[in-house]
Amino acid sequence: ATVHVKGVTYHFDNPEQAEKFAKRMAKELNGEVHVDGNTWHVD
Rank of each mutant, 00 (worst) to 15 (best):
A1W: 15
A1L: 06
A1F: 15
T2I: 12
T2P: 01
T2N: 09
T2Q: 11
T2F: 14
T2L: 11
T2D: 07
T2G: 03
T2E: 09
V3R: 00
V3G: 00
V3C: 03
V3Y: 00
V3Q: 00
V3W: 00
V3P: 00
H4T: 13
H4P: 00
H4E: 09
H4G: 03
V5A: 06
V5T: 03
V5I: 11
V5H: 04
V5D: 01
V5S: 03
V5K: 01
K6T: 07
K6V: 06
K6F: 15
K6W: 10
K6Q: 13
K6S: 13
G7K: 04
G7V: 01
G7H: 05
G7C: 07
G7F: 04
G7W: 05
G7L: 04
V8C: 14
V8Y: 09
V8H: 11
V8N: 08
V8I: 13
V8R: 13
V8G: 05
V8S: 07
T9G: 04
T9V: 15
T9R: 10
T9E: 10
T9A: 11
T9S: 09
T9I: 15
T9Q: 10
Y10M: 04
Y10L: 05
Y10C: 05
Y10N: 01
Y10G: 01
Y10R: 03
H11Y: 15
H11W: 14
H11C: 09
H11N: 06
H11I: 09
F12D: 00
F12L: 02
F12N: 00
F12Y: 03
F12M: 03
F12A: 00
D13G: 07
D13I: 08
D13P: 11
D13Q: 09
D13V: 08
D13R: 07
D13A: 11
N14Y: 09
N14T: 14
N14R: 06
N14K: 08
N14I: 07
N14S: 14
N14F: 08
P15F: 11
P15Y: 12
P15C: 10
P15D: 10
P15H: 12
P15T: 11
P15G: 09
P15S: 12
E16C: 12
E16A: 12
E16W: 10
E16D: 12
E16P: 04
E16K: 10
E16R: 09
E16V: 11
Q17N: 11
Q17G: 07
Q17Y: 07
Q17E: 15
Q17F: 07
Q17D: 15
Q17R: 06
Q17H: 11
A18S: 01
A18F: 01
A18H: 00
A18E: 00
A18Y: 00
A18L: 01
A18M: 01
E19R: 06
E19D: 06
E19A: 08
E19K: 06
E19I: 05
E19N: 04
E19M: 07
K20F: 08
K20A: 14
K20W: 08
K20R: 12
K20S: 13
F21K: 01
F21M: 03
F21I: 03
F21Y: 06
F21E: 04
F21H: 03
F21S: 01
F21A: 04
A22D: 00
A22M: 02
A22W: 01
A22F: 01
A22C: 03
A22P: 00
K23E: 12
K23Y: 13
K23C: 12
K23S: 08
K23G: 05
K23P: 01
R24D: 13
R24V: 09
R24L: 13
M25A: 06
M25E: 03
M25K: 07
M25T: 05
M25P: 00
M25F: 04
M25S: 04
M25R: 05
M25G: 00
A26S: 05
A26L: 03
A26C: 06
A26Q: 04
A26W: 02
A26M: 04
A26V: 04
A26P: 00
A26E: 03
K27W: 10
K27D: 09
K27N: 08
K27M: 12
E28I: 13
E28A: 10
E28V: 11
E28Y: 10
E28F: 10
E28C: 13
E28S: 07
E28D: 07
L29D: 02
L29K: 03
L29P: 01
L29R: 03
L29A: 04
L29V: 06
L29E: 03
L29Y: 06
L29I: 10
N30H: 10
N30D: 09
N30V: 05
N30K: 10
N30M: 09
N30W: 05
N30G: 14
N30T: 05
N30Q: 09
N30C: 12
G31D: 03
G31Q: 06
G31M: 15
G31T: 07
G31F: 10
G31P: 01
G31W: 11
G31R: 05
G31C: 15
E32H: 15
E32W: 14
E32D: 12
V33G: 02
V33K: 02
H34E: 04
H34M: 06
H34S: 08
H34T: 08
H34R: 14
H34A: 05
V35W: 14
V35P: 04
V35F: 14
D36T: 11
D36F: 12
D36E: 13
D36W: 10
D36M: 12
D36S: 13
D36N: 12
G37W: 02
G37Q: 04
N38T: 08
N38Y: 08
N38C: 06
T39G: 12
T39W: 06
T39D: 13
W40D: 02
W40Q: 02
W40H: 03
W40E: 02
H41M: 08
H41P: 02
H41L: 12
H41N: 05
H41S: 07
H41I: 15
H41W: 15
H41C: 13
V42W: 02
V42K: 01
V42S: 01
V42I: 08
V42D: 02
V42R: 00
V42L: 03
D43T: 15
D43E: 13
D43M: 15
D43F: 15
D43S: 13
D43I: 15
D43P: 03
